[in-house]
Design a protein around this nucleic acid. Structure first.
Lengths: 216, 216
DNA sequence: AGTTTTCCTGACCAATTGGTCAAGGGAAAA
DNA sequence: TTTTCCCTTGACCAATTGGTCAGGAAAACT
């Protein structure tokens, strides 16, 4: 996979500040464009325009469209998986899960483009990160599902299918990023940003909490 | 908007069986392609190939790419809104909501392409159905949210924000269509189709049921 | 049957797309 | 200051894209 940019001939050189700055500008622009139009719908010209540079200049840093796409996916991947990794068997089940929901929701609010990028990739059949889904992601989910299963076995949580519970959390939280336009359209001018986020959080917390809280 | 196909000159003629059949083939193919790549990422050649006809032939029925897109969106819209319309104030709250969840989940299973088509459209900023979202959809959601609010006021349901509850239901059910690839990847070969659908249904029903069931 | 209308296709076109390249302008090491 | 690389660009290219058109093949009407 190399170093993202500068896969050009000759040995690997030190990274210039210009290089560093431009690659970041490009990746930011690429996130913007790819997260809206997907790999196929996005054009290099468009990314270059958003990044404020000429197309050949952009292609100097990333030789092919696919390279940019790959780089921006990888860049966002870790950030996206972090919240689930933080779910700890040691903590109190309800606290842990609520915290996970809240963290994920915050990510959707603060980084909606990352959410949409993955959504686009997956909806197009995950041509690039398919292996990651089946490998790293599956392993992580299986691990945390086991943690939840442990809580259930210990009688600290209602018996629910852990995998599908995780799917529910993903779906509900990412919905606010992926379908942002629809959410706004339906809520109308009524709800101001922060307010509608707070309501979402309250609703999710409440339903999940009551929905899976341990035996009365 | 006209008659979808044959907006060609002259007065509107009767629809041939050939016409009817071909338009359906085209719309099926268009659903397949647009739901995967979105408006911009899809190509007319590709749709024609899936429909099993030449590009000029396809363009004989729909003169522009946008026309096909619009037609396939409209064709799917009603079907997509039906489940929510069926939610009735007259019924028992929990029964109604569970039934809605189940219906939506079945739609995701039986017509995942429709789900992905709308997801794509919305994620790309809803350039085509923006007005529908703010008009018809908002009106429908507001109406049903009022129904739910009524149940809450009557003490038959835990107090939750009705709009966000509806979002939760959309998100969780459509997730199985939109992120199908991811779901399969994470569940691995373990779960066979029908089995994993049944588990999803059970999990959603349970969490929503316990999550919002009226005061004990 | 013959005539009219619909259907279908190969050839074609302009615009856009991903990508290359030679050569000039700058930054930084010597 | 000089030299060496790094950076940037306009011009260019082949392939793909959305879309047109003239004319032949097949239906449909009479």
């Amino acid at each position: 996979m190399a170093d993202a940019g500068i896969a050009r001939a000759g040995r690997t050189r030190r990274r210039t500040r210009i290089q560093e700055a431009n690659e970041e500008r490009i990746l930011d622009a690429a996130l913007e464009v790819f997260s809206t139009y997907g790999l196929r719908g996005a054009t290099v010209d468009q990314i270059a325009a958003v990044a404020g540079m000429t197309k050949p200049n952009l292609l100097y840093y990333f030789r092919r469209k696919d390279d940019i796409y790959l780089a921006v996916l990888q860049r966002t991947l870790d950030m996206w998986l972090t919240p689930l990794e933080a779910l700890s068997a040691a903590g109190d089940p309800m606290t842990e899960i609520t915290a996970y929901v809240d963290r994920k929701l915050e990510m959707s609010r603060d980084n909606p483009k990352a959410s949409r990028l993955f959504a686009m990739e997956v909806m197009q059949g995950a041509p690039v990160i398919d292996a990651v889904l089946k490998g790293r992601l599956k392993a992580l989910v299986d691990e945390k599902a086991a943690v939840i299963a442990g809580w259930i076995k210990a009688g600290r949580l209602q018996p629910v299918d852990p995998h599908h519970l995780i799917f529910m959390i993903w779906a509900t939280t990412q919905h606010y990023a992926d379908f942002d336009v629809q959410v706004r359209a339906v809520l109308g001018g009524v709800a101001r940003e922060s307010l509608h986020f707070e309501r979402a959080r309250a609703t999710l917390d409440q339903v999940f909490l009551k929905g899976i809280k341990g035996p009365v």
